[in-house]
Simulated scan of single mutants.
Amino acid sequence: MDWDKLRIFHAVAEAGSFTHAGDVLNLSQSAVSRQISALEEALQVPLFHRHARGLILTEQGETLNQTVREVFSKLAMTQSLLTESKEKAAGRLRVTTTTGFGTCWLTPRLHRFVDANPDISITLILEDNDLDLGMREADVAVRMHPPRQPDLVQRHLADFPLPIYASPGYLEEFGTPATLDDLSSHKLVLFGGYHPPVPHINWLAEAGVPADEKRPARIEVNSLPAMAEAIASGVGIGSIPAYAAVLHPHLVKILSDVTVPTVDAYFVYPEELRTSKRVAVFRDFLLAEINGRH
Protein backbone atom coordinates (compact mmCIF):
# COMPACT_ATOMS: atom_id res chain seq x y z
CA MET A 1 0.00 0.00 0.00
CA ASP A 2 1.75 3.17 -1.11
CA TRP A 3 0.87 6.61 0.24
CA ASP A 4 -0.46 7.99 -3.04
CA LYS A 5 -2.99 5.20 -3.43
CA LEU A 6 -4.07 5.54 0.20
CA ARG A 7 -4.47 9.28 -0.22
CA ILE A 8 -6.65 8.73 -3.29
CA PHE A 9 -8.62 5.98 -1.55
CA HIS A 10 -9.33 8.29 1.39
CA ALA A 11 -10.49 11.07 -0.93
CA VAL A 12 -12.84 8.68 -2.74
CA ALA A 13 -14.19 7.29 0.54
CA GLU A 14 -14.95 10.80 1.83
CA ALA A 15 -16.38 12.07 -1.48
CA GLY A 16 -18.44 9.00 -2.33
CA SER A 17 -17.58 9.04 -6.03
CA PHE A 18 -14.59 8.90 -8.36
CA THR A 19 -15.66 12.13 -10.06
CA HIS A 20 -15.92 14.22 -6.88
CA ALA A 21 -12.67 12.80 -5.55
CA GLY A 22 -10.99 13.63 -8.86
CA ASP A 23 -12.15 17.24 -8.51
CA VAL A 24 -10.59 17.42 -5.06
CA LEU A 25 -7.35 15.76 -6.17
CA ASN A 26 -7.17 17.49 -9.57
CA LEU A 27 -7.16 14.09 -11.29
CA SER A 28 -9.39 12.64 -13.98
CA GLN A 29 -12.17 10.25 -13.02
CA SER A 30 -10.48 7.45 -14.94
CA ALA A 31 -7.13 8.02 -13.20
CA VAL A 32 -8.81 7.85 -9.80
CA SER A 33 -10.69 4.69 -10.79
CA ARG A 34 -7.48 3.01 -11.99
CA GLN A 35 -5.68 3.77 -8.72
CA ILE A 36 -8.52 2.33 -6.65
CA SER A 37 -8.65 -0.79 -8.82
CA ALA A 38 -4.87 -1.19 -8.41
CA LEU A 39 -5.18 -0.86 -4.63
CA GLU A 40 -7.99 -3.44 -4.53
CA GLU A 41 -5.91 -5.78 -6.66
CA ALA A 42 -2.90 -5.37 -4.39
CA LEU A 43 -4.99 -6.04 -1.28
CA GLN A 44 -7.09 -8.70 -3.01
CA VAL A 45 -10.28 -7.36 -1.41
CA PRO A 46 -13.06 -5.11 -2.74
CA LEU A 47 -13.06 -1.68 -1.06
CA PHE A 48 -16.21 -0.23 -2.62
CA HIS A 49 -19.62 -1.40 -3.74
CA ARG A 50 -20.16 0.34 -7.09
CA HIS A 51 -23.69 1.34 -8.06
CA ALA A 52 -25.38 3.87 -10.32
CA ARG A 53 -25.67 6.60 -7.69
CA GLY A 54 -22.14 6.40 -6.34
CA LEU A 55 -19.89 4.30 -4.15
CA ILE A 56 -20.40 2.63 -0.78
CA LEU A 57 -17.51 1.31 1.30
CA THR A 58 -17.39 -2.43 1.85
CA GLU A 59 -16.71 -3.75 5.33
CA GLN A 60 -13.02 -4.04 4.40
CA GLY A 61 -13.13 -0.53 2.96
CA GLU A 62 -14.61 0.85 6.19
CA THR A 63 -11.82 -0.77 8.19
CA LEU A 64 -9.12 0.63 5.91
CA ASN A 65 -10.67 4.12 5.80
CA GLN A 66 -10.87 4.34 9.59
CA THR A 67 -7.16 3.56 9.84
CA VAL A 68 -6.25 5.92 6.99
CA ARG A 69 -8.24 8.75 8.59
CA GLU A 70 -6.38 8.26 11.86
CA VAL A 71 -3.00 8.17 10.12
CA PHE A 72 -3.65 11.28 8.02
CA SER A 73 -5.09 13.18 10.98
CA LYS A 74 -1.97 12.42 13.02
CA LEU A 75 0.23 13.49 10.10
CA ALA A 76 -1.71 16.73 9.73
CA MET A 77 -1.36 17.40 13.46
CA THR A 78 2.37 16.68 13.34
CA GLN A 79 2.86 18.85 10.27
CA SER A 80 1.10 21.81 11.88
CA LEU A 81 3.21 21.49 15.03
CA LEU A 82 6.47 21.11 13.11
CA THR A 83 5.81 24.12 10.91
CA GLU A 84 4.74 26.38 13.75
CA SER A 85 7.32 29.04 14.52
CA LYS A 86 9.09 28.69 17.85
CA GLU A 87 9.22 32.47 18.28
CA LYS A 88 5.69 33.46 17.32
CA ALA A 89 2.28 32.03 16.55
CA ALA A 90 1.91 31.26 12.85
CA GLY A 91 0.08 28.96 10.47
CA ARG A 92 -3.51 27.92 9.87
CA LEU A 93 -6.00 27.43 12.69
CA ARG A 94 -9.27 25.63 11.96
CA VAL A 95 -11.97 26.78 14.37
CA THR A 96 -15.42 25.23 14.68
CA THR A 97 -18.41 26.47 16.62
CA THR A 98 -22.18 26.66 16.33
CA THR A 99 -23.78 28.60 13.48
CA GLY A 100 -25.37 31.10 15.84
CA PHE A 101 -22.28 31.86 17.93
CA GLY A 102 -20.04 31.90 14.87
CA THR A 103 -22.30 34.19 12.85
CA CYS A 104 -23.47 36.59 15.54
CA TRP A 105 -20.57 36.77 18.01
CA LEU A 106 -17.30 35.39 16.64
CA THR A 107 -17.21 36.52 13.00
CA PRO A 108 -17.77 40.24 13.77
CA ARG A 109 -14.79 40.13 16.15
CA LEU A 110 -12.34 38.08 14.08
CA HIS A 111 -10.89 41.15 12.37
CA ARG A 112 -9.26 42.11 15.68
CA PHE A 113 -7.64 38.69 15.94
CA VAL A 114 -6.27 38.61 12.38
CA ASP A 115 -5.05 42.22 12.69
CA ALA A 116 -3.14 41.32 15.86
CA ASN A 117 -1.87 37.99 14.46
CA PRO A 118 -1.00 38.51 10.78
CA ASP A 119 0.87 35.20 10.55
CA ILE A 120 -2.19 33.12 11.54
CA SER A 121 -4.90 32.30 9.02
CA ILE A 122 -8.32 31.24 10.26
CA THR A 123 -10.62 28.63 8.76
CA LEU A 124 -14.01 28.98 10.45
CA ILE A 125 -16.32 25.94 10.29
CA LEU A 126 -19.87 26.66 11.48
CA GLU A 127 -21.70 23.48 12.40
CA ASP A 128 -24.30 22.87 15.13
CA ASN A 129 -23.26 19.21 15.26
CA ASP A 130 -19.96 18.60 17.09
CA LEU A 131 -17.02 17.94 14.79
CA ASP A 132 -14.49 15.32 15.89
CA LEU A 133 -11.41 17.20 17.08
CA GLY A 134 -9.60 13.95 17.78
CA MET A 135 -9.91 13.08 14.08
CA ARG A 136 -8.76 16.59 13.08
CA GLU A 137 -12.03 17.71 11.56
CA ALA A 138 -11.02 20.99 13.23
CA ASP A 139 -8.20 22.15 15.51
CA VAL A 140 -10.19 23.91 18.21
CA ALA A 141 -13.85 24.40 19.06
CA VAL A 142 -16.10 26.73 21.00
CA ARG A 143 -18.77 24.39 22.37
CA MET A 144 -22.02 25.32 24.07
CA HIS A 145 -21.79 22.36 26.44
CA PRO A 146 -19.04 20.59 28.41
CA PRO A 147 -16.86 18.40 26.15
CA ARG A 148 -18.08 14.82 25.87
CA GLN A 149 -14.73 13.41 24.71
CA PRO A 150 -12.39 12.59 27.62
CA ASP A 151 -9.19 13.36 25.68
CA LEU A 152 -9.92 17.05 25.06
CA VAL A 153 -8.47 20.00 26.96
CA GLN A 154 -11.23 22.39 28.04
CA ARG A 155 -11.41 25.98 29.27
CA HIS A 156 -14.67 27.47 30.48
CA LEU A 157 -15.29 30.73 28.65
CA ALA A 158 -18.62 32.13 29.80
CA ASP A 159 -22.19 31.50 30.89
CA PHE A 160 -24.63 32.95 28.35
CA PRO A 161 -28.20 33.42 29.63
CA LEU A 162 -31.25 32.79 27.42
CA PRO A 163 -33.46 35.89 27.92
CA ILE A 164 -36.99 36.12 26.53
CA TYR A 165 -37.49 38.62 23.70
CA ALA A 166 -40.28 40.10 21.63
CA SER A 167 -40.52 42.95 19.13
CA PRO A 168 -42.22 46.23 20.02
CA GLY A 169 -44.73 45.62 17.24
CA TYR A 170 -45.69 42.20 18.59
CA LEU A 171 -46.15 43.53 22.14
CA GLU A 172 -48.24 46.43 20.89
CA GLU A 173 -50.53 44.08 18.98
CA PHE A 174 -50.77 41.13 21.40
CA GLY A 175 -49.81 42.60 24.77
CA THR A 176 -46.93 41.85 27.13
CA PRO A 177 -47.12 38.60 29.12
CA ALA A 178 -46.80 39.17 32.86
CA THR A 179 -46.03 35.55 33.82
CA LEU A 180 -44.78 32.35 32.20
CA ASP A 181 -48.35 31.06 32.32
CA ASP A 182 -49.38 33.91 30.02
CA LEU A 183 -47.14 32.50 27.29
CA SER A 184 -49.71 29.80 26.58
CA SER A 185 -51.86 32.45 24.89
CA HIS A 186 -48.98 33.88 22.86
CA LYS A 187 -47.14 32.86 19.69
CA LEU A 188 -43.75 31.26 20.21
CA VAL A 189 -40.63 31.12 18.03
CA LEU A 190 -38.82 27.84 18.74
CA PHE A 191 -35.85 25.94 17.39
CA GLY A 192 -36.64 23.05 15.06
CA GLY A 193 -33.94 20.62 13.96
CA TYR A 194 -31.88 17.59 14.87
CA HIS A 195 -28.89 19.42 16.34
CA PRO A 196 -29.93 22.07 18.88
CA PRO A 197 -27.27 24.82 18.88
CA VAL A 198 -27.44 25.26 22.66
CA PRO A 199 -29.03 23.27 25.49
CA HIS A 200 -32.48 24.36 26.69
CA ILE A 201 -33.11 26.36 23.51
CA ASN A 202 -36.81 25.37 23.59
CA TRP A 203 -37.36 25.77 27.33
CA LEU A 204 -40.25 28.18 26.74
CA ALA A 205 -42.28 25.31 25.26
CA GLU A 206 -42.18 23.52 28.62
CA ALA A 207 -41.84 26.27 31.23
CA GLY A 208 -44.84 26.43 33.56
CA VAL A 209 -46.87 23.68 31.86
CA PRO A 210 -47.51 20.07 32.99
CA ALA A 211 -44.66 17.66 32.32
CA ASP A 212 -46.52 15.82 29.59
CA GLU A 213 -47.49 18.99 27.71
CA LYS A 214 -45.68 21.44 25.45
CA ARG A 215 -46.63 24.81 24.05
CA PRO A 216 -46.83 24.75 20.26
CA ALA A 217 -44.59 26.91 18.10
CA ARG A 218 -45.93 29.56 15.76
CA ILE A 219 -42.74 29.00 13.76
CA GLU A 220 -39.77 26.64 14.13
CA VAL A 221 -36.43 27.30 12.49
CA ASN A 222 -33.08 25.48 12.71
CA SER A 223 -30.90 28.58 13.08
CA LEU A 224 -30.35 31.00 15.98
CA PRO A 225 -29.82 34.02 13.68
CA ALA A 226 -33.05 33.14 11.87
CA MET A 227 -34.86 32.79 15.20
CA ALA A 228 -33.67 36.30 16.09
CA GLU A 229 -34.89 37.57 12.71
CA ALA A 230 -38.29 35.95 13.24
CA ILE A 231 -38.68 37.44 16.72
CA ALA A 232 -37.55 40.86 15.46
CA SER A 233 -40.06 40.73 12.61
CA GLY A 234 -42.94 40.24 15.04
CA VAL A 235 -43.73 36.56 14.41
CA GLY A 236 -43.73 35.77 18.11
CA ILE A 237 -41.90 35.56 21.43
CA GLY A 238 -38.66 33.60 21.75
CA SER A 239 -35.72 32.85 24.02
CA ILE A 240 -32.26 33.22 22.49
CA PRO A 241 -28.77 34.10 23.77
CA ALA A 242 -28.02 37.80 23.94
CA TYR A 243 -25.26 37.35 21.35
CA ALA A 244 -27.94 36.36 18.82
CA ALA A 245 -30.27 39.20 19.82
CA VAL A 246 -27.61 41.92 19.65
CA LEU A 247 -28.05 42.33 15.88
CA HIS A 248 -31.60 43.57 16.59
CA PRO A 249 -31.22 46.36 19.16
CA HIS A 250 -34.94 47.20 19.11
CA LEU A 251 -35.86 43.82 20.63
CA VAL A 252 -37.53 44.08 24.03
CA LYS A 253 -36.47 41.81 26.87
CA ILE A 254 -39.60 40.63 28.69
CA LEU A 255 -40.35 38.64 31.85
CA SER A 256 -37.05 39.88 33.28
CA ASP A 257 -37.91 38.59 36.76
CA VAL A 258 -38.04 34.99 35.49
CA THR A 259 -34.97 32.83 36.12
CA VAL A 260 -33.78 31.74 32.67
CA PRO A 261 -31.45 28.87 31.72
CA THR A 262 -27.83 29.58 30.91
CA VAL A 263 -25.52 28.14 28.28
CA ASP A 264 -21.99 27.15 29.34
CA ALA A 265 -19.46 27.93 26.61
CA TYR A 266 -16.14 26.05 26.51
CA PHE A 267 -12.97 26.39 24.46
CA VAL A 268 -11.74 22.86 23.68
CA TYR A 269 -8.86 21.31 21.75
CA PRO A 270 -6.91 18.03 21.58
CA GLU A 271 -4.21 17.26 24.11
CA GLU A 272 -1.65 17.22 21.27
CA LEU A 273 -2.18 20.96 20.72
CA ARG A 274 -1.63 21.94 24.35
CA THR A 275 1.70 23.58 23.50
CA SER A 276 0.54 25.25 20.27
CA LYS A 277 1.07 29.00 20.25
CA ARG A 278 -1.77 29.50 17.77
CA VAL A 279 -4.19 27.80 20.14
CA ALA A 280 -2.92 29.83 23.10
CA VAL A 281 -3.28 33.21 21.41
CA PHE A 282 -6.75 32.34 20.11
CA ARG A 283 -7.84 31.23 23.59
CA ASP A 284 -6.54 34.50 25.05
CA PHE A 285 -8.35 36.45 22.32
CA LEU A 286 -11.67 34.75 23.16
CA LEU A 287 -11.29 35.45 26.87
CA ALA A 288 -10.36 39.09 26.24
CA GLU A 289 -13.36 39.61 23.97
CA ILE A 290 -15.79 37.94 26.35
CA ASN A 291 -14.48 40.02 29.26
CA GLY A 292 -14.48 43.21 27.21
CA ARG A 293 -10.71 43.62 27.13
CA HIS A 294 -9.65 44.77 23.66
Results as ranks from 00 to 15, higher is better:
Met1His: 13
Trp3Met: 14
Arg7Thr: 14
Ile8Arg: 09
Ile8His: 01
Phe9Lys: 05
His10Arg: 12
Ala11Pro: 09
Ala13Gln: 03
Gly16Asn: 01
Gly16His: 00
Ser17Ala: 07
Ser17Gln: 04
Ser17Asn: 04
Phe18Val: 00
Phe18Cys: 01
Ala21Val: 04
Gly22Asn: 03
Val24Glu: 13
Leu25Trp: 03
Leu27Asp: 07
Gln29Val: 04
Gln29Met: 13
Ala31Gly: 08
Gln35Asp: 09
Ile36Cys: 01
Glu40Ala: 01
Glu41Phe: 09
Arg50Ile: 09
Ala52Asn: 11
Ala52Asp: 14
Leu55Lys: 02
Leu55Gly: 03
Thr58Arg: 08
Thr58His: 08
Glu59Phe: 10
Thr63Asn: 13
Leu64Thr: 11
Gln66Thr: 15
Glu70Arg: 12
Val71Ser: 07
Val71Lys: 03
Leu75Met: 15
Met77Ser: 13
Thr78Gly: 08
Glu87Gln: 12
Lys88Arg: 14
Ala90Lys: 02
Gly91Thr: 04
Leu93Glu: 00
Arg94Cys: 09
Thr99Lys: 10
Phe101Tyr: 15
Pro108Thr: 02
Arg109Met: 06
Arg109Asp: 05
His111Gly: 10
Arg112Ala: 12
Val114Leu: 09
Ser121Asn: 06
Ile122Tyr: 02
Thr123Val: 14
Leu131Trp: 08
Leu131Ile: 08
Gly134Gln: 13
Glu137Phe: 05
Arg143His: 09
Pro146Cys: 06
Gln149Met: 12
Pro150Cys: 00
Leu152Ala: 05
Val153Phe: 02
His156Glu: 14
Leu162His: 03
Pro163Leu: 01
Glu172Cys: 01
Thr176Leu: 11
Leu180Thr: 08
Asp181Glu: 15
Asp182Thr: 05
Asp182Trp: 05
Leu183Trp: 07
Leu183Asn: 09
Leu183Pro: 04
Leu188Arg: 01
Phe191Ile: 00
Gly192Trp: 05
Tyr194Phe: 10
Tyr194Val: 15
Tyr194Pro: 03
His195Ile: 07
Pro199Arg: 11
Asn202Met: 03
Ala205Trp: 07
Gly208Trp: 11
Pro210Asp: 14
Glu213Phe: 11
Arg215Thr: 07
Arg215Gln: 09
Arg215Pro: 12
Pro216Val: 06
Ala217Asp: 10
Arg218Ala: 14
Ile219His: 12
Ser223Lys: 08
Pro225Asn: 11
Pro225Tyr: 11
Met227Arg: 03
Ala228Arg: 08
Ser233Gly: 09
Val235Thr: 15
Gly236Asn: 08
Ile237Leu: 07
Ser239Cys: 02
Ala242His: 08
Val246Tyr: 02
Val246Glu: 15
Leu247Trp: 06
His248Lys: 06
Lys253Asp: 14
Lys253Val: 07
Ile254Ala: 04
Ile254Thr: 03
Leu255Phe: 02
Ser256Gly: 10
Asp264Ser: 15
Glu272Ala: 15
Arg274Gln: 15
Thr275Cys: 07
Ser276Lys: 08
Lys277Gly: 11
Arg278Leu: 05
Val279Trp: 05
Ala280Ile: 05
Phe282Trp: 05
Arg283Ala: 15
Leu287Ser: 10
Ile290Trp: 06
Asn291Tyr: 10
Gly292Arg: 07
